[in-house]
Amino acid sequence: MSKLTNQTALITGATKGMGLAIAKKLAQLGCNLLLAARNSDALKALKVNLEKSTPNINVQYFVCDFSDRTQLDGLTQWVDQIAPHLDILINNVGIFHAVSILDESDEDFDLQMSINYYTPHLLSRSVARNMRRNSKGHIFNISSIASREPVSSAGTYTVTKYAVMGLTHVLRDELRPYGVKVTEIIPGSTLTSSWEGTAIPADQFVLPEDIAAAIATCLTMSEGANVDEIVIKPRYGNI
């Protein structure tokens, strides 16, 4: 029996890229899933496919535009109601805009702050309160190598990822006395929809499945081990 059997994980941005790879990996390990993304049809299809390939798990989903605070509040309330003993939170959803701070619009700024920072902050706050009470749980924040190596051509994106790094450190310190683990996953150039249409060979990238494998490894370690952070870069360097 897998260590994750009968555990439940919430994954944001679950229908594409890293989120999709993580959902498939955790399903294989016997984890029940709560999936959140914007596209209702994609969520429904993913639920059907996962429950067909791994019939021993339960999959539920919530349609959410993470740039809409009302919808995000609805997601946190839904999770609190149906999964007060949530075991795993994976803050994966994110958006990348290649625009400098000086040239960005207010809309660029607001959208990136809402999705890349407010979402993991508010979800973590809500879920962590229950994890603290339950004295168990594991939060994963997927940030970016931009949180260590600033990208001025993607200014606010970089700032949000630095904020996610800070959030991770604070959460880890707050939750450590209660036995709750917090891990930051820090990918370099990863072959997701952001690179759609590229002629660069796949072996120049980190693959979404690599991120999923890293999370699975963290989740299957001993109870006494916490991986603070994992940096995963392409072997030939970032693109």
Rank of each mutant, 00 (worst) to 15 (best):
P120D: 10
M1I: 14
R129Q: 14
L122H: 09
G237P: 11
N130H: 15
G19K: 04
H97M: 07
L207T: 12
S143N: 05
T158S: 13
W78G: 08
G188E: 06
I230P: 05
E229P: 00
P208H: 04
L29A: 10
L167V: 03
P187G: 05
D173E: 14
T76E: 05
L219N: 06
L26E: 09
R172V: 07
N6I: 05
I11M: 02
P55E: 05
K52Y: 01
L33Y: 03
I57R: 02
G94T: 01
D228V: 15
Q7L: 08
Y178R: 00
G197Y: 00
N130W: 03
E184K: 08
N39K: 13
E184Q: 15
N91R: 03
N116Q: 12
Q28H: 04
D65I: 00
L20R: 13
L43N: 09
D228E: 15
K16P: 03
I186E: 09
L219A: 08
S152C: 09
L171E: 15
I22S: 00
L35Y: 06
I239A: 02
Y118P: 00
M1C: 10
T168E: 03
V170H: 10
I239E: 10
V127G: 07
T192S: 07
T119L: 12
N91L: 07
I145A: 12
S100Y: 06
S100K: 11
P187I: 01
L102S: 13
T76K: 10
S153P: 02
D87G: 09
I142F: 03
V227Q: 00
Q204I: 02
D110R: 13
P84W: 11
D80N: 07
D68E: 13
D68V: 09
T5G: 00
I145H: 07
R129S: 10
R176E: 13
E184L: 11
Q60R: 13
N39D: 15
A199Q: 15
Y162V: 11
S135V: 07
N39R: 14
A213N: 15
Y61R: 00
V170W: 10
V231D: 01
S144T: 09
Y117D: 05
L75H: 09
I142P: 06
A213L: 11
L34E: 05
R132C: 04
L123E: 06
N130Y: 13
S193N: 12
Y157D: 11
T5F: 12
N91T: 06
E184V: 07
I211A: 02
A83I: 04
P55M: 01
L167K: 01
V206M: 02
F62W: 03
T160C: 11
E107A: 15
N49I: 00
T198R: 11
L122V: 08
S124L: 01
N226T: 13
V48K: 06
H169N: 14
T168N: 06
A45Q: 12
D228C: 13
